[in-house]
Amino acid sequence: MPASPLVEFCDVTKRFGDGPIVLDRVSLAAQEGDFVSLIGPSGCGKSTVLRLLAGLSPLTAGTIAIDGMAPDAAAAELAFVCLEPTLLPWLTVAHNVEVPQKLRGVPAVERSATRRHVLELVRLAEKADAYPRQLSGGQKMRVSIARALALAPKILLLDEPFGALDEMTREHLNEELLAIREKEAWTAFFVTHSVAEAVFLSNRVFVLSSHPGRIQREIAVPLPYPRTEETRLSPAYHELVANVSRVLRSVETAAA
């Protein structure tokens, strides 16, 4: 019998005010340790799924359970990384990484230990005293991830975190993200536009259709972890990418 899911969406429906229905009876369950990717046409409600999960916006109908709790009660178990690195420009990298803990009243000694640890994880220890504007786009994103990890979250929500980066940097950070996950077991919800990225990272890919947003198909990615450069060359990987692309295209033509 499978363990009870860490995150469970039951018939989740969402509309903003009296606008159109954005998400229509979305149901999904993620086990602890899953790396879930959400992919779908722009505007289909992927970000909304994450925002509901983070308790940043109320549900219209249905329920979300995180570890058996409602999203706003489970906030302490979540961390969010989004497209923009959202660093505080007036703080150094070190201080940025410490912000979440500072907000929770964690004492300074403990904060600086965590900060060293997470900056080590994203391999930016030497940039601790730099200001955000002195970093490249990829480095800023790594700081943003480090900050998210500083709270040792059980669940990491990532909304197109590498969407603004170039292909090379993106692939590199994908590998780095998985390497970090080898050391720190969290469950991931990852929104992306890139099929290759979704397949490379996840063990489960959900393809969403739009207007209203629904889960069109779940595709399992049975490639073994740890995944590396080699994974990208394997025929199984390519077949999965082709498969997900096909489903995504069918969703997009249906929408057009």
Binding site: L78, F80, L103
Partner: peptide, 9 residues
């Protein structure tokens, strides 16, 4: 940033 702060309680 405001949202981030909200998320972190």
């Amino acid at each position: 940033l405001v949202e981030l702060f909200r998320l972190y309680g």
